[in-house]
């Protein structure tokens, strides 16, 4: 299928772009029911939960503990209101150190 792979890639691009674009550009949402507005405002926080779990537990297929330690480091750093980039670097460092224990 190598000959038409580039066409497959373009097809993948289209079916990825359309859901990204449609609601933002096409929906007329100025008179949405307040309930629906509320639900849409809930989405970011709900999706964060779903993006973190269970994924973070499987970053190292051999050890759930690895993900737990990384998540705990991030949680503590975030609890201290550190900047996002510091939280990210701190958890990488903690895990990097942990691999040498």
């Amino acid at each position: 299928m190598n000959d038409n792979l580039i066409w497959v890639i373009i097809g993948m691009g289209l079916v990825t772009y359309i859901p990204r674009m449609l609601p933002l550009v096409m929906f007329h949402t100025n008179n949405l029911h307040p309930r629906v507005q509320g639900i849409l405002k809930n989405v970011p926080f709900a999706i964060l939960g779903a993006l973190i779990f269970p994924g973070v537990l499987t970053i190292n297929p051999d050890s759930v503990l690895y993900g737990v330690i990384g998540a705990a480091a991030a949680f503590i750093a975030a609890w201290l209101n550190l900047n996002v980039i510091i939280v990210v670097l701190a958890s990488i460092l903690v895990l990097y150190g942990y691999t040498f224990l």
């Binding site: 750093a77 990210v88 958890s91 895990l95």
Partner: peptide, 12 residues
Amino acid sequence: IALYAMFIALLV
């Protein structure tokens, strides 16, 4: 861990 740490930093 980077992306997960970022998600946690956005959520907490």
